[in-house]
Simulated scan of single mutants.
Amino acid sequence: MNPVRLLIVLVAAVSAIGLAVVMQRAMGGKPAAAPSAAVAPVAGKPMTQVLVAKRDLAIGDRLTGDDVTWQAWPTEAVNAAFITNGAAQPKPQGAAKVTAAAAIAASDMIGGVDPAKAVEGAIVRDPILTGEPITPRKIVRGGDGGYLSVVLSPGKRAMAVPITSETAVGGFILPGDRVDVLQTREEVGPTGDGGSGKVMIAETILENVRVLALDQSTAAEKDAKSIVAATATIEVGPIDAEALTKAKAGGPVTLALRAYTDLGGPSGVTTRAARRKPGEDNLVRINRGGETTNVSVRP
């Protein structure tokens, strides 16, 4: 073949290839599908609408429709405790979330009541974070009841204790903390020298009880590290309530803050306080600077 003619053919072939590339890019970079080829649809991952919190919810908050919303959740990851609309649907294209209005309109009714409306009026028992699924364990249907009647643990009572900054760790005790309740009192007993006199007794009456509120505050304000209050409301059992009432009548009480790691220990009236009988105190005689002090101790 003539070299000139061969060169012309090669240039034409290169030009045709370049034109094809340009046209492909102009059409979005996707090559045209062959007429006989069938495109298989991509199946969406099954999703279920789960009721979640729209904002951070604190203990004692009463839920309204503005506090919750529906959110698409992978069906395979739905926990049995989650509140759902009972229907699975394909994963929405182009939207990670479904608006509350659209979800409620399309949701199945459970027992004739929409789940989002069923939680209205409930009171938050444990903190719930934004986007966290609502579970029955973390809310209480309070109805017309007050805050304390629904946040109290079953069988427990709420009792108020007068406090000061000195008897409440300088105000560093906050709602939700665990404390011991100590009583200080004077009693007449043997002095150890054959006579009798007044002795000062300090005794732990209750241990590891939960603080429900300080005055009317059921939660510390954001970033607050202390609350100076005149009254602490604590959660006690029926027998604990009797012991605390006797302690308050016998002398001033003091709250001792417990470490967070001690929360799982025994709670309620101490065995020592429950078994104590008058006259069972052991006296220790202390001589200091020429003065003698009698202190009652317990084994």
Rank of each mutant, 00 (worst) to 15 (best):
S165R: 09
G290F: 03
A33D: 07
V297F: 09
A229M: 02
L182P: 00
T48F: 05
T167S: 10
A243W: 00
K138R: 10
P299K: 14
A13K: 12
A12M: 05
T84K: 08
T48E: 09
A247Q: 04
A103F: 02
V22C: 08
V140L: 08
D262A: 15
L206R: 02
P175N: 04
V169E: 11
S153W: 05
N208V: 01
P35V: 15
R285Q: 07
P46E: 04
P74E: 04
L263A: 14
G279M: 05
V78T: 13
S217F: 08
R272S: 15
A34V: 12
V21L: 14
K225V: 15
L283C: 11
A230P: 03
E242W: 11
A103C: 07
E76K: 05
L255V: 09
I8C: 05
L51I: 11
A241Y: 05
A219G: 13
Q89S: 14
G18Y: 09
G189N: 13
A53I: 05
S226G: 06
R157S: 12
A241C: 05
A13W: 13
G289F: 12
G44E: 05
K97N: 14
V253I: 12
D262M: 14
V9H: 06
S165C: 03
P175K: 04
V209P: 07
Q49Y: 06
L182T: 00
L152T: 06
A118W: 06
V209K: 00
P175G: 01
K246F: 12
A249C: 09
P252E: 06
A20W: 15
A53Q: 04
E203G: 10
I205M: 04
E166I: 08
G279W: 06
L255Y: 08
L244W: 07
G28K: 07
T271L: 11
I59T: 12
V169G: 10
G142K: 00
E221C: 08
G197C: 04
A37I: 05
L244I: 15
V269P: 06
T293R: 14
G155M: 03
R178I: 01
G194V: 12
A100F: 14
D215L: 01
G197L: 03
V150K: 06
N208M: 02
I205L: 01
P266G: 02
L182M: 08
A103E: 01
A122D: 15
D144Y: 14
A213K: 00
V297W: 05
E280T: 13
V151N: 02
T204E: 08
A43V: 11
V39N: 07
R25E: 07
T84I: 11
